[in-house]
Design a binder for these strands. Structure first.
Lengths: 237, 237
DNA sequence: CCAAAAAAGATTGCATACGATTTTTGTACA
DNA sequence: TGTACAAAAATCGTATGCAATCTTTTTTGG
């Protein structure tokens, strides 16, 4: 599997930094699992792909490594992150700690317009669940993450929001790697329940629902150490 | 105030990336307030200071901007961050949300060796409080932050720990900017209380003490918008 | 004397070049 | 066939150069 086949060009929105645009593209590709964990992202290849010099490509990869989506090894290059089960556990521990609080904050600030946005988000999720195929599956994971990001944006704390972006992106990787069945439908109904609680401004309920929701997501993971993950990684697969 | 006068050379520990070493140096300088908020950090100057090319200096500044300690404006350069009162509020809201949880986690994992480390940390704090002068004051803020970082490391979640490093660093900036009196002595006694609760493994108490502690720190800030912060920034001071 | 325009200077954004390190390929030998 | 080693290729780390942009100073006109 080659990078070239998996990433589309960044011709669109970019009056800002080009490195940032490239980062966003790569992040989407990683979160959507078009780039498998462990895939090598060479500066040269990324550069030619997006038609920039290695300098800019390097900056983009650096950013992704700060977000934990890419691992950079000195003199060896950048690779799509391959989170360990332990890392996955810490990730969800972090979310358990933070997201109920975010949900509570969101509950206190949510507006009617926000509710409309939530409903639209739920619809989107539902659509992907109905569809079949791996593409829909990816979109489903993405949409599910977007729900949590929407909640974070409603909470109105930019610092926590940025942190949540990191956590959600890394969670998508973890779910793609260790996810068992599809809690999908289940997760969707839980999202719906959360929106309902938001609407009725029951912050205690929102917080509790969110906590359970995260527990359910993590419970669906199979975090037993797989036979030879080192080998698997050594094989760069 | 010039950068050159405020930063010492990075001759020490560096078999790793040079950019990282420079970042660490600059971060210390910013957190210690040897570099005032708003100070311009030009790539060229940083480069010559640490005896590297602009490429490496630029990478270090980029890292600091990800941590929120430096603000980079396109085509204008990098400046030491100048957090707004609103940003300060969000910062402490984040800490209120996270640190009680971290304290609880730490309580469940704390060892005898950790307690020894905490005691040493408390001693260090006490020493700086006893001393007079602006240098001691800076060291005091630093030491106070280190206490929180030590707690985060005991909690054993690498993801939260890295986030706390960011929050603590930015808090130091905020305290330096908006801090009124010295909660210092007060804060020190609260730290002592937290260690005591840790020792008796009372996780509920630890969590509550931490929450109050953060409240006290924030209460000491004067977050009223100062006359012409825009002006102050325009004057680059 | 002051305001606006123009020129000079400084700084950043980006591409490219080159040495250093790693990885791969090729070949000889057991 | 498989291993050891050496050469070649690829990739990274970093310095440097040039164009674009911003800042400061000087000049010009009122």
């Amino acid at each position: 599997m080659n990078i070239t086949d998996r990433v589309y060009s960044a011709a669109d929105s970019a009056n800002q930094d080009r490195a940032q645009a490239i980062r966003d593209n790569l992040r989407d590709a990683i979160v959507d699992r078009r780039l498998a964990p462990g895939t090598k992202l060479s500066e040269g290849e990324v550069g030619t792909l997006f038609d920039v010099s290695r300098t800019v490509a390097r900056a983009a990869l650096q950013m992704l490594s700060f977000e934990g989506l890419v691992r950079i090894e000195r003199n060896r290059g950048a690779f799509v992150a391959n989170p360990s089960p332990e890392e996955a556990r810490q990730l969800f521990a972090s979310r358990r700690l933070i997201e109920p609080g975010i949900a509570t904050a969101a509950c206190e600030r949510v507006t009617a317009a926000d509710i409309v946005a939530f409903r639209a988000q739920l619809d989107e999720e539902g659509r992907f669940i109905a569809e079949r195929g791996p593409t829909a599956r990816r979109s489903e994971i993405k949409a599910s993450g977007d729900f949590h990001l929407l909640l974070a944006s409603v909470a109105g704390n930019a610092i926590l929001q940025r942190f949540m972006e990191e956590l959600v992106a890394r969670s998508s990787l973890v779910i793609a790697l260790y996810g068992r069945s599809g809690v999908s439908a289940c997760g969707h109904s839980e999202h719906t329940g959360i929106v309902g609680a938001l609407e009725s401004s029951d912050s205690g309920l929102v917080s509790r629902l969110m906590l359970h929701h995260i527990d359910h997501i993590e419970a669906d993971l199979d975090l037993r150490v797989r036979a030879g993950p080192a080998l698997r990684e050594a094989l760069n697969f």
